[in-house]
Design a protein around this nucleic acid. Structure first.
Lengths: 348, 348
DNA sequence: TTTAGCACTCACTTAATAAGAGTGCTAACT
DNA sequence: AGTTAGCACTCTTATTAAGTGAGTGCTAAA
């Protein structure tokens, strides 16, 4: 792959990203700083087409990048991103966050929501935040509250400030004192452990405990098992759906319906936003790289936030494949860092 | 207003609702059981047009109902609805709910989400549920948990099973024992009271309390005030946005963008879904009756759920003005009853 | 290897025409 | 007085045709 060809590919992508129009050889010849005739550029373009990095919507139209072309382009960006150290943004972040921190006391969810809001606004895409996975969150406190004769409300309070509640159904009726005793025991044993850790050692610990008398042990184990049996995936917060409507590539209502269906479903997004957390840096799925066919006109970008020992969620955007990737990547980086800061302020 | 004219209006609306096409006099003449010539019907239509109940998109097109026309039509439906007693649906509901209740233990939010999901599916519209207003929910338990030196996590557990958390910021650092004592006191005093009740009597009760020693009283009051100072509006859950894309009247992406902006904002919806709770029965805003210009192509229908003494939220849909109102109204009624049942099972 | 020139393709625009659905009005009918 | 038939008129939609222009691919010359 020629360096000149590479540069021409870059130009085609940049141009197409801003105009949303196929770019032709003549226009490119004028645009390019290195002076080349349209005919020469046509030759190069022909090569790029053979490599399936660009294509033409119809014979004798200008060229537009293919998903593969975007991928080639994006990989270069990511490689550059990797080399340079970026400690600067965090500093300015800390200041700006400090300024805002006085604003209003918030729910944990509101912090996530605020991050989504801001990211959607600066990227002009639909933004998505996945809340920290309960399974890897560390327990701070557990409350067991009788709701009715056969139902117990379990409230899990995590060290991160995240609160999860679930309703557990029963055959028998646990007494109120039993519940308070049990929750106390669980707190003592498991404070600071992650939910998944608790799940594995639950039976063992409870059995060891001398306080629990023998007849109530089975009930305690049953209740404990159910209490900590929560979904591994976090909740998904989506914001800025209206932004998607603005793009010319999504002018048909059918296309929009498909995309919004994917948003309603959340399935595909949850899957990607979970995977993202295992890898460092912004992860990107371009067009047909998405596992759902529903999103094959979109690019999805995301990265994780938080700190690995305590809590971990992910944040990113959904937009058209025709994105200013460089900008969006930094925006996500920025948001991720800001959000990490915001949620980690509760961890001493 | 003639009875015949009224019937013709009904037919125009019914026809238009199913076909989405303007209906003409000839078609109507064939459709109508009472045999009238097209010419006669034209005369009647002319009258209806003068009354602004129907209009024509352009000269020499068929007629379509105006917002006012829909309103006239809907008022009749509501009047009929009012007269007939509807105890039957509840019975069949109880059975169907009982069948499902074993399915899976859920979070309180999941119950609301499931209701939204179902309503969206049966109405083919976008559905909206507003969670019970915290202000009128009754307290079951309050937890005060230190997060960092200057921050306390407040967890409010309501009798309904709803859980609210918020983070309260401080200058000084309350000791852990102080927090446990305070939360215990608050529980004893205020269990079973609504949050707004608590807000009004908070200072008085705390001051009376002999347990609180004098120096910590101001801190206790400050903390209590902040703890119970939560938004009066519930959260809004929206589902089935993709359904909106299907309607031919929303074919333009601009229209869609406007509607989705309203969904992102939530402001307008929250306002309507709050108002709804003060009134019995399904409330309806047709087209320009909506207070936001953004929704003047839509109809919004909603009713409250829950039982007045304990908790109150609202549930409804957003769709085009061209709706089968009768069906959607019953669907909302059904969902409201089902949801009421689902949430009230926790109240003994 | 690069460039200039030329024929060709295809979408988009505009205009003109035709078809069709529906109205409004008038006059006749019951 | 209410109802009907007939007819001219209006306005949208579909279709066709021609013209325009951007852009390509190929060939031959520099």
């Amino acid at each position: 792959m020629d360096q000149r060809a590479e540069h021409i590919l870059d130009c085609i992508i940049n141009q197409y990203v801003t105009t949303a129009e196929p770019v032709g050889s003549r226009a490119l010849s004028k645009l390019l700083e290195m002076k080349l005739s349209a005919a020469t550029i046509r030759n190069v373009m022909s090569d790029l087409t053979d490599m399936e990095l660009i294509c033409q919507p119809y014979t004798s139209a200008g060229r537009i990048p293919t998903d593969k072309g975007y991928r080639y382009f994006v990989n270069k960006i990511l490689a550059i991103e990797e080399t340079k150290e970026d400690t600067k943004p965090i500093k300015s972040l800390q200041e700006s966050t400090q300024g805002q921190s006085k604003q209003l006391p918030q729910r944990f969810e509101d912090i996530l929501l605020a991050a989504t809001r801001e990211l959607a606004q600066i990227t002009n895409c639909t933004s998505v935040v996945m809340s920290p996975q309960p399974a890897v969150s560390r327990l701070k406190k557990i409350e067991l509250i009788p709701l009715s004769l056969t139902q117990v409300l379990v409230v899990l309070i995590m060290q991160s400030g995240m609160v999860r509640n679930k309703i557990v159904h029963f055959r028998e009726t646990p007494s109120e004192t039993f519940l308070t005793r049990l929750s106390h025991i669980l707190c003592v044993y498991f404070e600071g452990r992650t939910i998944s850790e608790i799940r594995t050692s639950l039976i063992e610990k409870l059995s060891q405990n001398s306080e629990t008398n023998q007849e109530s042990l089975p009930l305690a184990i049953r209740l404990g098992k159910k209490a900590f049996d929560i979904e591994d995936q976090g909740d998904l917060y989506i914001f800025g759906r209206s932004n998607i409507c603005g793009f010319p590539e999504f002018s048909s209502q059918q296309t929009l319906e498909i995309i919004f269906r994917a948003f309603d479903d959340k399935q595909a997004l949850v899957s990607f936003f979970s995977d993202v957390m295992d890898i460092e840096g912004v992860q990107i799925r371009i067009g047909n790289e998405n596992k759902t066919h529903d999103l094959d006109q979109c690019s999805v970008l995301a990265t994780s936030y938080g700190n690995k020992e305590n809590l971990l969620g992910s944040i990113g955007v959904v937009g058209p494949t025709r994105l200013n990737y460089s900008e969006v990547i930094s925006a996500i980086d920025y948001s991720s860092q800001k959000l990490s800061l915001a949620v980690s302020q509760f961890l001493d």
